[in-house]
């Protein structure tokens, strides 16, 4: 640890000198958190900026333009049916693969955030004792933890929010151009990314913090936090289909694609053949918002409970 990052209390006369010039500069505990975790902050900002660059490239790069051109006018008189292209056009397949890959990254932010929060944000300070030092400098433990959680939560919410909004715009573009296969991809892509994605990153933060407070060591908290966040994400995902009543049989809005036969409680589609049962969890596209909002609520509630437990644990340790 270099000297610049250790939370030395500023000498008493210094603030008076700089007070005028730094009205915009955050003070006290907030400044400490920003300064201490500036590397992580820049990594996050770089991640968000680069991801947006990649999203723009997927859409406006030659491959994306090509894929859109291939499908232009599909399904209308004098053109092929839209689903005839699904497997044959390289540009289309590549664009869809990129969408899937970026979605995969966005869906797996929680374990990474949890690893960072468990190790660098909280665990390291508890392990090397700098947390105790802060608590003697007129920062109460509760205040310390609150700032430690609030600052990254703000950055995560804004960054993930911007990413999700950009991704949804890209997804809308691909839906308008009939690039998604019915069923399977609408299920993995369309229903997967939204406000709930932001909630999952916050859940990751809460999980990491709790792991660090329980274990009080950086590396074990890193492993436990990441594993717990990943397990929670995996455990919640299969319930997504049951968060909202499925569409009625024969509902024409289901999957919006020709070639679907009705089956069981939903719609069967040939392209779903890779999943266990094309009929389970059939949700029409316009159920997107209700499903997302219910999921967001559940994930946020879970995160809130974990934060509450974290404060409890902190209180017990210091009582």
């Amino acid at each position: 640890m270099s000297t610049s990052t250790s939370p030395h209390p500023a000498p008493a006369p210094a603030p008076a000198k700089t007070a005028k010039t730094s009205r915009l500069r955050p003070s006290g505990q907030l400044w400490t958190v920003l300064r201490l975790h500036r590397t992580a902050l820049w990594v996050w900002v770089a991640f968000v900026v680069i991801s947006i660059g990649v999203l723009l490239w997927v859409r406006y790069g030659s491959t994306g333009v090509d894929a859109a051109a291939t499908l232009a006018g599909c399904g209308t008189a004098g053109h092929r049916a839209c689903d005839e292209w699904m497997w044959s056009d390289t540009a289309l397949v590549t664009t869809r693969d990129r969408l899937l890959e970026i979605g995969q990254v966005l869906r797996n932010l929680a374990p990474v955030v949890a690893a960072w929060a468990g190790a660098a944000l909280i665990g390291r300070e508890l392990e090397n004792g700098t947390a105790e030092l802060a608590w003697t400098q007129s920062v109460s433990p509760a205040r310390w933890l609150a700032t430690k959680l609030a600052v990254p939560a703000a950055f995560l919410t804004v960054g993930a929010g911007v990413l999700v909004a950009s991704y949804r715009m890209l997804l809308d573009w691909s839906v308008t151009h009939h690039m998604l296969r019915a069923g399977y991809e609408k299920y993995t892509l369309y229903f997967n990314i939204g406000p709930a994605t932001v909630a999952y990153t916050l859940l990751g933060l809460a999980v990491g913090a709790l792991a660090a407070l329980l274990l009080r060591r950086a590396v074990p908290a890193l492993v436990a936090g990441a594993a717990a966040a990943w397990l929670l994400t995996v455990a919640i995902a299969p319930w997504r289909g049951s968060l909202w009543p499925v569409g009625a049989v024969g509902d024409s809005s289901l999957w919006h694609l020709p070639g679907s036969d009705s089956c069981g409680g939903g719609i069967y589609n040939h392209n779903l053949i890779d999943s266990v049962d094309p009929c389970i969890s059939a949700q029409p596209a316009d159920h997107y918002l209700p499903v997302q909002l219910v999921e967001t609520g559940i994930v946020l509630a879970l995160a809130a409970v974990l934060v509450l437990i974290s404060f409890r644990v902190l209180h017990r340790r210091n009582a």
């Binding site: 069981g264 069967y268 266990v276 049962d277 094309p278």
Partner: peptide, 23 residues
């Protein structure tokens, strides 16, 4: 085996899930 449409017995579902578990 893979396309359970509700018309077959529970066994179909069982096999479907074993096949799915393997994949």
């Amino acid at each position: 085996i893979r396309l359970s449409n509700g018309s077959c017995t529970d066994n179909t579902w069982f096999i479907a899930s074993s096949d799915w578990a393997y994949r």
